[in-house]
Design a protein around this nucleic acid. Sequence first.
DNA 1: ATAATTACTGACCCAACAGTCAGCAATATT
DNA 2: AATATTGCTGACTGTTGGGTCAGTAATTAT
Lengths: 203, 203
Amino acid sequence: MAPQPKYQRRKEDRPQEIADAAFSEFAKKGYSATRIDDVARRAGVSKGLTYLYYKTKEDLFKAVVRNVVVRRVDALLDDVETTNLSSEDFIRGPLLDFMKRVPGSPIAIVIRLLIAEGRRHPDLVDYYYDNVVARGLDAIRRFVERGVERGEFKPEARQLQPQLFLAPMMLSMIWRLVFADKPLETDRLMEDQIDLLLTRIKA
Amino acid sequence: MAPQPKYQRRKEDRPQEIADAAFSEFAKKGYSATRIDDVARRAGVSKGLTYLYYKTKEDLFKAVVRNVVVRRVDALLDDVETTNLSSEDFIRGPLLDFMKRVPGSPIAIVIRLLIAEGRRHPDLVDYYYDNVVARGLDAIRRFVERGVERGEFKPEARQLQPQLFLAPMMLSMIWRLVFADKPLETDRLMEDQIDLLLTRIKA
DNA sequence: ATAATTACTGACCCAACAGTCAGCAATATT
DNA sequence: AATATTGCTGACTGTTGGGTCAGTAATTAT
């Protein structure tokens, strides 16, 4: 009786829905262990449709990474730029908070995918470097520079490699990805590092 | 004419040779992209023989990881224990040298494999944790403790998480695995970190 | 209403690859 | 030299999963 339609046509939303489903599957099982069938089922869609919007599995993978990256990074970096706190307050406040959130965020998943699959997708690695790493490092450099100009940091602060700020964040990320159940006070790790650095560079 | 034998029987050496070949292939292409055929060819052996010594591909994978781990870690940790240098000289000398070597060593490859495949091999992760991570962290803790007892380090040094020593090494490793071609002075990164830590804990 | 359009389905194809095994050839034994 | 043993080969099988496409049903246009 009821003319229940078997499906609705939703051309606009499908690509995003499929990409979201793919992200979940990739996150759970990694790239090669993920079957397009699983992605399609999770997106509530047939396998064929996936191939209508993404030519190959690799295309889908790239779309997923780019997707997650652009949706996250912009907002977070803007935050870092538009602050009127003192350098120390900012670094101990918003910046530290941001760093603490990263290891549990989708960014960590993307990093795992890049570590695992990066060699076979060099253009993806470049994309990630340009849009996340380079921009992040630059933000830190500008932040330090501003601190020096304001007289809050010693001039030698300029010599520090920005990666020194991020190292414990990185370790925490990997730790959680690999040893999910082993204890580690990742927050304190990052706090201590910031402390070490501030002690060194504060004017 | 020449009774060239098609092969020699070398029961003793085969397992190791196959494991070595497998390590090279896993390192180059990752676990799932590696075909047993390739491993066999690299080891100069037929595919069937691989299955004689290793029941499944997963078995082979586990053997490879365990193999690399045991062969490397023992020697390196012994070195850390049996020193009669002062704490500062030791940390700036042999320990730093060790850390600088890790990102380019097979250990880095194993880490990548664990990051990529770890979730599907929890027993392997545990093995790695017990035999590498836990032992490494313990060595650092004992080293710090000894420094405190000798009066070379402040007692507060005990509060530092050992991971703080390793964070830049970790970042350098990941950096090289993912962004092989992008420049980063990884050695200086580790030196600076040691410097920060020593300044903080030296008595 | 009817026809034209197209988002979507799902059965199908086929290459790739983990795993098997009957037989062979290199040693060891007699 | 003949026989027994077993390390090793390579052709084979079965399955998995990426990718295709002819057809169908939901819209849109007329």
